[in-house]
């Protein structure tokens, strides 16, 4: 069965939520609860409740970011990341630039893929030049400036990449999760993860 293709989706891992819940119960007891901020309840509450139970959600609880594994408590798993797909692949020649201001110049003739997500999705523009994304198990550097609605990366060496291939952003397996991003930006992992594309649907996945 082919994988569902998303233009942009905030992936919410059921497995990570359950493992975080278990760890946090060890630390805070079985009645530990989590507070989903008002600005996020509509997007998250039902989905999270379907995994951890509605009794685990309460306004007086621990910050929601802890359950997502992106708060201040160590040893948890990041339960969210952004998913998109390859929207186009093009040939580009050595010496040509990528994106605005041509801050990246290609050293070789390359195949450049574009994914339709950008700083409007919480991929902070200041991560231009450092961000890597996960494509078919490979961590690929994003080339040039992150635009409002697109990022580009080199897929020359990935022979099976095509339109529709999944692109994961801020997924810990890429080696560029929220921890790396927050170090570069001087912010918290919670802020980046919680404010991940608010125009994207939240998709619960196994």
């Amino acid at each position: 069965m082919s994988e569902q293709v998303y233009r942009r989706a905030v992936m919410l891992s059921e497995e990570a939520l359950l493992s975080n819940l278990e760890e946090l119960r060890k630390l805070y007891g079985n009645s530990v609860t989590f507070a989903i901020p008002e600005t996020l309840t509509a997007r998250y509450e039902d989905k999270v409740a379907s995994v951890v139970g509605s009794e685990a959600i309460d306004v007086d609880g621990l910050p929601f970011a802890e359950l997502l594994g992106v708060g201040e408590i160590g040893g948890l798993h990041s339960a969210v990341w952004l998913r998109s797909h390859v929207l186009g692949i093009r040939d580009a020649a050595a010496g040509e630039g990528i994106s605005y201001g041509a801050t990246h110049i290609l050293e070789h003739d390359s195949q450049i893929a574009l994914a339709p997500v950008g700083f409007a999705d919480g991929i902070d523009r200041k991560l231009s030049g450092s961000l890597s994304v996960l494509v078919e198990g490979h961590s690929l550097p994003v080339l040039g400036r992150i635009a409002m609605d697109s990022i580009s990366f080199d897929v020359t060496d990935l022979t099976v990449t095509k339109i529709g291939t999944t692109v994961d952003i801020f997924r810990s397996e890429s080696g560029f999760g929220f921890d790396r991003a927050s170090q570069i930006l001087g912010t918290t992992t919670a802020e980046l993860a919680i404010r991940l594309s608010e125009r994207a649907e939240v998709i619960l996945c196994r």
Partner: peptide, 16 residues
């Protein structure tokens, strides 16, 4: 903060 005003505006929460 070294970015575009565009980025700040388009990232104001939809809940606002």
């Amino acid at each position: 903060i070294g970015t575009l005003g565009d980025e700040i505006c388009c990232r104001i929460s939809p809940a606002v």
